[in-house]
Simulated assay, not measured.
Amino acid sequence: MKALIYSVPGETEVREVPDAVIQEPTDAIVDVIATSICGSDLHVVSGDLVPDTGFILGHEMVGRIRELGSAVKNFSVGDRVTVSPAPYCGVCASCRRGNYAHCQFGGVYGCGETYGGFAGSHAERLRIPFAARDMIRVPDHVSDESALAISDALTTGAGGVTKAVTQQGRTIAVFGCGPVGLSAIHYATIWKPAKLIAIDLVPERLEIARQMGATDVISAADPREELQRITGGVGVDAAIDCAGVEATFQAAIDSLAPEGFLSIIGIPHKPVSFDIAGALRNGLNLWTGLADVGPAQTIMDYIADGLLNPDAIFNHETTLDEAPALIKTLMTSRDHGIVKAVIRP
């Protein structure tokens, strides 16, 4: 089968590799219909995230079941499915506490031995461990793109929102309107916010943010003054930092009302400073972490029922053979205009 390999820092290539095969009775083999490039894939390829190389990239996927292990009874060959980016066993101590992102036997697809050694989704086929639990059936009327969003962007954005938003009718600010930020904005509409504010410097992304539910948009390197104006000087109840840079982190902290919540789900390239004394004075709440894969089925139900439609974040489509050039473009250009690309193996 063909697969996209992370070969050395800064470089990827498409190679012929051995077919994905059943290794355990709990496995499934899926023909990949669509996969996509995540920002964390770019972190991997840059050499910032993992030390290992030579593995198949990718952790976002929708596909059709080709083969099932003998223990997988709740799916059939031919079912269209998606998966969470982080396979988890469901029975270890971490999973029993609901802490699926830190499963003792899990990891992340397409991130090398550092994250469990699971081959990635940028391939013609993918082995799914713990398939009976981890796969999510895709209803016929749900698009490949919407199912693909559940694999990471929408699940991650939803996790950040859920940690920061404690009740309906709150004022929410999302810093950074990449795929995860746009997904956070879209999922936040479930909470019926009083204000849902999108912050980014790219006009096209702010327009998509409006389509996905933002009530206000801010295009400014320093949005603090405008946030104060929009909130009447009160500040926001919840902020979600999806950019992972010093400037957005500081602006997000400063924008919070007393007792406000900040979720950090953007991956920073370098450490950021933190005024803990100021946070203590205002009773601020700070959370950071990996995607919460537990609610993925609930998110699929929202999409199936028409409450969410994340298709708008996908504005480019390509083939597996063209993926190395696309990754180069995403890593080196700021003017590519791509929000999120669908790859069709």
Rank of each mutant, 00 (worst) to 15 (best):
2 K>V: 03
6 Y>A: 08
8 V>S: 14
12 T>N: 05
15 R>T: 08
16 E>P: 00
16 E>Q: 14
21 V>Q: 08
25 P>A: 10
26 T>D: 07
27 D>E: 02
27 D>S: 02
27 D>P: 00
31 D>T: 10
33 I>H: 07
37 I>H: 12
38 C>K: 08
40 S>I: 07
41 D>Q: 11
43 H>E: 13
43 H>C: 09
44 V>S: 07
46 S>T: 12
48 D>I: 12
49 L>F: 14
49 L>R: 13
53 T>R: 13
53 T>P: 01
56 I>N: 07
56 I>H: 06
57 L>E: 10
58 G>K: 04
60 E>V: 12
65 I>S: 09
68 L>A: 09
69 G>M: 07
69 G>D: 05
72 V>K: 01
75 F>P: 07
78 G>L: 07
78 G>N: 10
82 T>R: 03
84 S>K: 11
85 P>F: 05
87 P>I: 09
88 Y>C: 11
89 C>G: 06
91 V>M: 04
92 C>T: 10
95 C>Y: 05
99 N>M: 14
103 C>V: 10
106 G>R: 02
108 V>C: 08
113 E>R: 14
113 E>M: 06
114 T>H: 10
117 G>S: 01
117 G>D: 05
118 F>W: 02
122 H>F: 15
123 A>C: 11
126 L>H: 11
127 R>C: 09
128 I>D: 04
128 I>E: 00
128 I>S: 11
136 I>T: 09
139 P>D: 09
144 D>L: 14
147 A>Y: 01
148 L>Q: 10
148 L>D: 01
153 A>H: 00
156 T>R: 08
160 G>Q: 10
161 V>S: 03
164 A>M: 07
165 V>Q: 06
165 V>N: 02
168 Q>H: 13
173 A>Y: 03
174 V>G: 05
176 G>S: 08
185 I>E: 00
187 Y>H: 14
189 T>V: 02
190 I>T: 10
194 A>P: 05
195 K>D: 11
201 L>S: 03
211 Q>Y: 01
212 M>R: 05
213 G>N: 02
214 A>E: 00
214 A>D: 00
214 A>Q: 01
215 T>H: 11
217 V>T: 15
217 V>R: 11
218 I>D: 07
228 Q>H: 12
232 G>V: 10
236 V>T: 07
241 D>S: 05
244 G>H: 03
245 V>P: 04
248 T>D: 01
249 F>L: 14
250 Q>L: 12
252 A>C: 04
253 I>T: 13
264 I>S: 05
265 I>T: 14
269 H>R: 14
270 K>Y: 04
274 F>R: 03
275 D>I: 01
276 I>E: 05
278 G>W: 01
279 A>H: 06
279 A>M: 15
281 R>M: 05
282 N>L: 03
283 G>V: 04
289 G>W: 12
289 G>K: 07
290 L>C: 13
294 G>T: 12
295 P>E: 04
295 P>M: 09
297 Q>W: 10
297 Q>I: 07
297 Q>R: 15
298 T>D: 15
302 Y>R: 00
302 Y>Q: 09
305 D>F: 02
313 I>Y: 06
314 F>M: 10
314 F>P: 09
314 F>Y: 15
314 F>I: 02
316 H>T: 03
321 D>C: 07
322 E>G: 08
322 E>K: 15
324 P>I: 08
329 T>S: 14
334 R>W: 01
341 A>H: 06
343 I>V: 15
345 P>C: 13
